[in-house]
Nucleic acid binder design. Structure first.
Lengths: 338, 338
DNA sequence: CTGAAAGCGCTTACAG
DNA sequence: CTGAAAGCGCTTACAG
């Protein structure tokens, strides 16, 4: 193919100046309707395509948003990223996406790359560790950046944060199990000391505290494999524990597999609550009770918040918390199974 | 923040011309080592960040690759997209990603957006329907574009195609079940008439043909929900069918749930083979036998093929087929379950 | 309502 | 080894 046609080619063919063509591109009412139609016709004829990059150089509104995700293979983050990307797309923005795989160095690298590419704003579900390597360059470049799902930088003025109400989720889960008559309720999975774990655990701890029940915390990787392992050790080492709250649905799904493996009946011998309510929860059998974070809705909302920031200059509050709800399914209601 | 520093600021501060700074940016040996070091120091001091967009305007090598995916929420495509993105990132390219949700109009829209953003090349796992709306603009723009996983445009010169060897996968699955003594083997899920379905089915049909066995095809959505439904109707309407090949792992996972629900034992009463070998297959219980497409490896390879095309001008062959293998697990070997 | 000119931040010949 | 000038494809005041 030859060189792509430019506004100069269009202008020449249409017999106007390139400024006029530029105005048409911007749908300006300064140009007579007739002329506009004529110029558009010429564009179609010669196959003109708008060079947004060049336009951006002068006016600097790239229409490019960077989305950085710590673990894109995890369905929870996939759902989130997809939702953000599609919302941005509907609003005329393209998304440059990168998975950091929980690697702080990789994160720093992709963040720099995005800055070089001139992203208008960033949304980041960050990984833990070496936060400065990623966030200092962003701060220097002065790019509006939203921390989501995990808070790793405490300066909420510069890097506003948003997440579902994890603490309330932990509370709802614990209250639900308590109302079902559970006497011993364990919290399983999740790395100790991390913000998300602490929040989810806090709700659980406060409910148990009020009820005068001794908590049991079994931390671990937030994976199916861990859930599967813990299902076995729960049966062996903690036979009296009749209910568990899982750090995430992945852990809960692992528990489901583990229980199937050892023949322990979910909902009857062991009640299980997941966290996040990813799609799988409703699809597996027995279906999983879970704390719904409405991650798709959360993604849409985050996209909108970010665009409001870049388009209207309206910075989000330092911290945004979105509501959660408990979705009760078979894994905590034996009748649904029978 | 103020305006970002440019090479002019760097040049002024370092007391050289901006051309020299530009050469340093490109690591040119034309500039004395000393000068280079000095200029780099200045850059660090004033917080200079390279403006790749401006650079691109003159030299047109954007370092931006467009990745278009038909269903990003499906773990198979997630794995693929993640693998592609990470490989590109490691090679210094940023990825602009879009999910089309199987919507041809949306696909056409995101493709145009990517072209406007000046992507260097495109990789597309396309949706079916109105192909011209997406591919004609690409052709006009003359952007190197690889069709992956699904072939919707037949012109392999202009749009080379690559996918795992689906037909061989169908064959391996059928042979495996046959060798296990299965007498009636059904192929379930997948939309009739689509290229992927036809390929996967073809291997199955040829094996059954040779064995003189009547095929049974039960097409349907490639989803967990369909798998769950069909598990029930298999037990009711086709009790003699002792083995199924699923169009995809999602269907197989649905069958697994469905069987758990009605108390049918996988591997014993019903042998199940999935397709793709997504991560879940090894994690669920009983674990699923599946045709491994090594989708992560496939993604890496596709990224490399595409970069070879844009960097060295070496266009890929019209069609590339990558090997598959059968991974045998509990769902087809009862002993593993016991 | 439309045109001529400058400028966005780089790279690329071309001189020296 | 380094500098001055033109140009990438647009937008944006400024004239007219």
């Amino acid at each position: 193919m030859d060189r792509r046609p430019t506004i100069i080619d269009v202008a020449r063919k249409a017999g106007v100046s390139k400024s006029t063509v530029s105005l048409v591109l911007q749908n300006s009412t300064l140009v007579k309707e007739e002329t506009r139609a004529e110029i558009r016709k010429v564009m179609a004829e010669i196959g003109y395509v708008y060079n947004r990059v060049a336009a951006n150089m002068r006016s600097s509104n790239a229409g490019l948003i960077g989305l950085v995700i710590n673990d894109l293979r995890n369905p929870f983050f996939t759902e989130f990223a997809t939702s953000v990307q599609m919302t941005l797309s509907a609003r005329g923005y393209a998304t440059v996406l990168a998975n950091t795989n929980e690697d702080p160095d990789l994160q720093a690298q992709v963040v720099s790359a995005m800055i070089e590419h001139g992203v208008t704003a960033l949304m980041i579900s960050p990984t833990y560790g070496n936060e400065a390597a990623s966030f200092d360059p962003i701060a220097r470049a002065g790019i509006p950046t939203l921390q989501v799902l995990r808070k790793v930088v405490s300066d909420g003025r510069q890097f506003p944060f948003a997440a579902p109400d994890y603490e309330e989720g932990g509370r709802l889960a614990a209250e639900h199990l308590l109302s079902l008559g559970a006497h011993q309720i364990a919290f399983i999975g999740g790395f100790q000391g991390r913000d998300v774990t602490k929040k989810r655990m806090k709700g659980y701890l406060s409910v148990l505290g009020h009820a005068g029940i001794e908590p049991l915390i079994l931390p671990g990787r937030p994976t199916r494999a861990f859930g599967r392992e813990i299902a076995r050790s729960l049966a062996q080492d903690y036979p009296d524990v009749g209910a568990v709250i899982c750090f995430s649905d992945l852990v809960a799904l692992g528990v489901l597999s583990g229980c199937a493996e050892i023949g322990r009946r979910l909902g009857i011998e062991l009640k299980v609550v997941g966290f996040d309510d990813i799609e799988d929860c409703a699809q597996v059998w027995p279906s999983l009770t879970s704390v719904r974070c409405d991650i798709a809705g959360f993604g849409r909302r985050m996209a909108e918040i970010l665009l409001e920031w870049v388009e209207l200059g309206r910075a989000p509050p330092e911290e945004t918390t979105t509501p959660v709800e408990l979705i009760v399914r078979a894994s905590t209601s034996p009748k649904a199974i029978a």
